[in-house]
């Protein structure tokens, strides 16, 4: 696969020829990340970074204004008894609740992300997806998390998938577009790589693993493949693309291993919530517990951390 930059124009590669991936080798590389030992200052700094990268998420059919308001409060006040904590990066909700979240977060740096494009299955015509996205943007969403058409992708209709992403990107303007590949439905790491390349070339600001509705959601091997795709894309075009693993990351140790992976594959430039996010709901409290433990020396109980 080659992308030739000619007069600032990126030539779109033939996505049938994206790089190949060996699964066993990928898992062995991942095991090197998980064997990194993160202690003391590195641990505390890392945990704080994890908090600042969380997209606090609720995506339930049962979501209400009340639920979203509670979550937004938590986003702003992660654990007030510990001074100096960051806020999360964003909250992530359905389009119908964007305006609620937006109002709750006035005066903060916390972004409001909205899923869109007939999340999570994406099985609607493009014009419905565009309308869905436009609604979220009109409601004030800072970021849009779209899903790709996995069915079309499996059919080999890569141009369709590409065009669809490009169409959504086209209406996003300053709104940052995260493209969800739903890797749990792709079935092979080669396809994760291919979908990543399609999304980035079509204009994704972020690529994201999962909706959270399908298992497996984010895993380290899948994320590694996406990070390597980002690295190669950056190498060829100079364009940075963000990464968001979502779903299945609920403890601090695992989150820190993700950060190690980002650091070693992409470098320190990506270690900020502008370029890396965790899509998670229960991760924040586990990180908070670890931070309190580090500061007090006591192992913590869930009873001391608010659930919102």
């Amino acid at each position: 696969m080659t992308t030739i930059i000619n007069n600032n124009e990126i030539i779109i590669p033939d996505f049938r020829n994206t790089p190949l991936i060996d699964q066993v080798g990928t898992e062995e590389r991942v095991s090197r990340f998980t064997k990194r030992s993160i202690k003391n200052e590195a641990k505390e700094a890392g945990l704080s970074m994890v908090l600042s990268m969380i997209d606090l998420t609720t995506l339930e059919g049962a979501d209400t204004q009340g639920k979203v308001k509670q979550m937004c409060y938590k986003a702003r006040h992660l654990h007030d008894s510990v001074p100096g904590l960051p806020t999360v990066a964003a909250v992530c909700v359905y389009p119908s609740l964007v305006s609620v979240a937006k109002k709750e977060l006035i005066g903060t740096d916390i972004k409001v992300a909205s899923v869109a494009t007939a999340f999570p299955a994406g099985q609607t015509p493009l014009k419905v997806k565009i309308a869905d996205t436009q609604f979220a943007i009109d409601q004030g969403a800072d970021e849009v998390d779209m899903v790709i058409s996995r069915g079309r992708f499996h059919s080999g209709d890569y141009n369709y998938v590409f065009d669809e992403i490009a169409s959504i990107k086209n209406i996003c303007n300053d709104v940052r577009l995260k493209v969800i590949l739903e890797t749990g439905e792709l079935g092979a790491l080669d396809k994760v790589r291919r979908a990543s390349d399609i999304a980035m070339h079509a204009g994704a600001d972020f690529i994201k693993t999962s909706t959270g509705k399908i298992k497996p959601a984010a895993t380290l091997p899948v994320t590694l493949i996406m990070l390597e795709a980002i690295r190669d894309y950056h190498e060829k075009t100079g364009i940075m693309v963000g990464m968001k693993p979502a779903g299945g990351i609920s403890n601090s140790k695992l989150a820190l291993h993700y950060l190690i992976m980002v650091k070693e594959v992409l470098g320190d430039a990506w270690l900020t919530n502008r370029w890396f996010r965790f899509g998670a709901s229960s991760l924040a409290n586990d990180v908070l517990k670890q931070i309190v433990k580090l500061r007090t020396g006591r192992y913590q109980s869930n009873d001391y951390f608010s659930i919102d």
Partner: peptide
């Protein structure tokens, strides 16, 4: 990785002997 973001942090592993 030449591109540097303004908010770039530097995060290094502490010794873990």
């Amino acid at each position: 990785m030449k591109t540097k973001d303004k908010s770039e942090s530097s995060w290094n592993l502490s010794p873990a002997p």
